[in-house]
Write a protein that binds this DNA or RNA. Structure first.
Length: 592
RNA sequence: GCGCCCGUAGCUCAGCUGGAUAGAGCGUCGGCCUCCGGAGCCGAAGGUCAGAGGUUCGAGUCCUCUCGGGCGCGCCA
C-alpha cells in the first residue's frame, strides 16, 4: 500500500520539522495536479507559518520515496504524483489474503428459530454475517462461524405442538420448513390459542430434555437448504438444549456471584431474585438492576446469552461436538452430548443480531466486565443492523407477513433466466448463470448500505440488474474475463507505455486492500461493496473511453508492449473484482 | 419519562472519521463506434446536507437545542 508508505515518510519529515503528527494521505481531486495529497492547515498554528509555506517547506525537506515522481504544493496542500511505472507495478501485483495472525474471531450469525422458513429479515443477517466472516478471514484473522439453534424456545415448541395438534402430515411437495411454518401461523390464528398453553408448555419441557431433537432437526435441515443456496458458510452448530444440559448457565452464575455487583436482594422489587448491578459498567441507567435468575428460579434469556458468551471466549467449558450429518456442509460440526469436548476460546466475538438486541448485548458485555474480564468485554462486538421492512411495512413472522428467502431466490432466478436468455442466447449454462446473477442481486442489495440504516425490501430494486447492483459488478467482471479468454497467453508488459487511462484505473485498483481492511476494522461490508461499485465503474469507463471518435483503450489490438500492459491490468482488475465479490459471498461468473 | 439510531437531489443511498467546486444509482431529457459483451458508456436538469445556534483557518462530518422518523427500556422470549 503506497499510501501507507507515503504517510510514513511524511510523518518522519514532519517529526524533524518539530511536529510529530501522522497525516492521512487522500486521493487528490480529479482536477488538481497529482494523485495523492495531504492538507497542512492543521499545522499552521503550531508552526506559526501559513499553510502554503509549510507545503513548500515539507516539499523541500521530504526525501521522496522512490515511487513518487514529484511533490507539488497546491495552496495549503502538498500533492504527490506517483511514478507511472511504480504505480502500474503496484496495480499489477497479485493480491493475496493478509498474513494470518493468531487469535480466533468467532462470528455468530443466522441463528434462526428452527420453526419456520427463513424470511427476508433473516436475509440481511446472513448476508452481513457471512460477508464479515469472509472479510475478516481475508484480513488475516482465524474465523469460526457459529449458528445457534434455539431448540428449547417457545417458537420451536409451538411449531412442533401445532404439527401434532392439527394432525398434519407432510406430503413432500412443499419444503418442510414452509410446511412447519404454516402450522405455526395457524396456531397463532387459532381462537383456542390461549387454552392450548399448558400443552405447549409440555412440549417446551420435552425440548429442554432434548427429547424432540430429531423433529427440530428436520426443520433445521430444510432451513439449511436455503442457507446453502445463499452461499453462506458455517463451522459450528450449537443447540441450546446442549447448553442447558452442560449446565453452562449455572457455571456462569457461579462466576458472576463472586462479583459484589451480583446479589440477591432480600426486599423490594427484586426480592428473592438474583440481580446484576450494571451501573459500574453502564452509567446513567434509570434502573441499573437486571434480573439474572427470577425468584421462581428460572433464568432470563439474557442470562443464557451471558453464559454462552462466557463459553465462546473460553471462560467456561463443557460443550461437546461431533460431525453433523447433512447434505450441504461436509465439514460442519454440531454440539452433541456424545461428542468430544471442545471450546473455541475466541479472543474476539461478533454477534450479528438486529439492533433491537442492543440492550441485552450491552448486558453481556457488562457481565464480562463484572466477572473480571474487562479486556474481553471490549472484544465482544455486537454487529447491530436495523430491521428490514417489506415494501415499506413491518414484517411479522407470527402473522405470516413476510416474504420467504426461497421465494425471493426463485423469483430472482426467474428474472435472471429471462435476461440471460435475452442477452446471451448461446450461453452454455443459462441455469447456472441465472443462479449466480440472482444471488449477486440479492446479497449485494443486503450489504451495500450501512448496517445501522433501516432498509426497505422492494422486489423492483432488490432484484434489479442495472445500476448500483451486484450484477453490475458481475457484468464488469465477465466483460474483463471475456477479453482475457480471447487473448490467450501474453508476454511481458511495457509499463512505460501507460497512458493516463491506465494510470486512472491502476490508481483505483490500489484502494482494494484498504477497502477490505476498512471493512474488517469497522465490521461493515458496505465499505467493500461501495468500493467494488467504484472499481467496476472505473473499469467500464476505461473500456468505453473514446478519443476523436475512436476507441482510446483497445486491449487486444494495442501495439506490442502496451497490449501486454493492458492485458495484465485487465487481469488484475478481473481478479480483484472476483476476490471482492467472493468476500461478499457472491460468485463471479466468467460468462453471463 | 429515560436511552440509542436515522434525517444528504423527486426516490434509494455513498461521502475515506474535520479538508480541495457535496458524489452515485433509479427516474426524466439528450447522445454513443462497420472495431475487445449496450446488464454498458458520455452528457444535461435536479441540493438551504431537516432547522437554529456554537466550536474551528475550514463543518454534511464535532457540541447544544428544536422538529420529524425508527427502535429499546418487564421477575415475557
Amino acid at each position: 500500500m503506497l499510501r501507507r508508505a507515503l504517510e510514513e515518510a511524511i510523518a518522519q519529515a514532519l517529526k524533524e520539522m518539530g511536529v510529530p503528527v501522522r497525516l492521512k494521505v487522500a486521493r487528490a481531486p480529479k482536477d488538481k495536479p497529482g494523485d495523492y495529497g495531504v492538507p497542512l492547515f492543521a499545522l499552521a498554528k503550531e508552526l506559526r507559518k501559513p499553510p502554503q509555506a509549510i507545503a513548500q517547506e515539507l516539499k523541500d525537506r521530504l526525501p521522496l520515496p522512490e515511487f513518487v515522481e514529484e511533490a507539488i504544493p497546491v495552496g495549503g496542500y502538498l500533492n504527490f504524483r506517483l511514478r507511472t511505472e511504480a504505480l502500474l507495478r503496484e496495480a499489477l501485483r497479485p493480491k493475496a489474503p493478509f498474513p494470518r495472525r493468531p487469535g480466533v474471531v468467532l462470528v455468530e450469525h443466522t441463528s434462526v428459530n428452527p420453526n419456520k422458513e427463513l424470511h427476508v429479515g433473516h436475509l440481511r443477517n446472513i448476508a452481513l454475517g457471512d460477508a464479515i466472516a469472509r472479510i475478516l478471514a481475508y484480513a488475516g484473522r482465524e474465523v469460526l462461524v457459529l449458528n445457534y439453534i434455539d431448540d428449547t424456545g417457545r417458537q420451536a415448541a409451538e411449531t412442533l405442538f401445532a404439527l401434532r395438534h392439527y394432525g398434519l402430515t407432510w406430503d413432500g411437495k412443499e419444503k418442510y420448513d414452509h410446511f412447519a411454518g404454516r402450522a405455526y401461523v395457524r396456531l397463532h390464528q387459532d381462537p383456542e390459542y390461549e387454552r392450548l398453553q399448558p400443552a405447549i408448555e409440555e412440549v417446551l419441557h420435552a425440548l429442554e430434555r432434548g427429547e424432540l431433537r430429531e423433529e427440530v432437526n428436520r426443520i433445521l435441515l430444510a432451513q439449511m437448504a436455503t442457507m446453502h443456496a445463499l452461499n453462506a458458510r458455517y463451522d459450528l452448530l450449537v443447540w441450546e438444549s446442549d447448553i442447558v444440559r452442560a449446565g453452562l448457565l449455572q457455571k456462569a452464575l457461579a462466576l458472576l456471584e463472586q462479583s459484589p455487583h451480583v446479589f440477591r436482594p432480600r426486599e423490594g422489587k427484586y426480592a428473592g431474585a438474583l440481580v446484576m448491578d450494571a451501573s459500574p459498567v453502564i452509567p446513567g441507567l434509570e434502573d441499573p438492576f437486571f434480573v439474572l435468575l427470577r425468584s421462581n428460579g428460572t433464568a432470563t434469556y439474557y442470562a443464557k446469552d451471558i453464559a454462552f458468551q462466557f463459553w465462546k471466549m473460553g471462560i467456561l467449558e463443557g460443550l461437546r461436538f461431533r460431525p453433523y450429518e447433512n447434505p450441504y456442509y461436509p465439514g460442519l460440526r454440531t454440539s452433541a452430548p456424545e461428542g468430544e469436548a471442545y471450546t473455541p476460546k475466541a479472543e474476539e466475538t461478533i454477534n450479528v443480531i438486529d439492533v433491537r438486541q442492543s440492550h441485552p448485548q450491552a448486558l453481556v458485555r457488562a457481565a464480562l466486565a463484572l466477572a473480571g474480564y474487562p479486556n474481553l468485554a471490549e472484544k465482544a462486538h455486537h454487529l447491530a443492523y436495523e430491521t428490514v421492512l417489506l415494501e415499506g411495512r413491518q414484517m411479522s413472522g407470527r402473522k405470516g407477513l413476510a416474504v420467504s428467502v426461497d421465494e425471493v431466490l426463485e423469483e430472482a432466478t426467474r428474472r435472471a433466466r429471462a435476461i440471460v436468455e435475452e442477452k446471451n442466447p448461446d450461453h452454455p449454462d443459462k441455469e447456472e448463470a441465472a443462479r449466480m446473477v440472482a444471488l449477486g442481486a440479492i446479497r449485494f442489495s443486503m450489504v451495500k448500505t450501512e448496517p445501522k440504516k433501516q432498509i426497505d425490501f422492494r422486489y423492483q430494486e432488490a432484484l434489479s440488474f442495472e445500476g448500483d447492483t451486484g450484477p453490475y459488478v458481475q457484468y464488469a467482471h465477465a466483460r474483463a474475463h471475456s477479453i482475457l479468454r480471447k487473448a490467450g497467453e501474453w508476454g511481458a508488459p511495457d509499463l512505460s507505455q501507460a497512458t493516463p487511462y491506465e494510470r486512472a484505473l491502476a490508481l483505483d485498483l490500489l484502494d482494494f486492500e484498504e477497502a477490505v481492511l476498512d471493512a474488517a476494522e469497522e465490521k461493515t461490508p458496505h465499505v467493500l461493496a461501495q468500493y467494488l461499485l467504484d472499481l467496476a465503474a472505473s473499469w467500464n469507463a476505461y473500456y468505453n473511453a473514446r478519443e476523436n471518435g475512436q476507441p482510446a483503450t483497445p486491449v487486444l489490438t494495442a501495439p506490442e508492449g502496451l497490449r501486454e500492459l493492458r492485458l495484465s491490468l485487465v487481469q488484475s482488475l478481473q481478479r480483484t473484482l472476483a476476490t471482492g465479490l467472493d468476500l461478499l459471498g457472491i460468485p463471479a461468473p466468467e460468462v453471463m
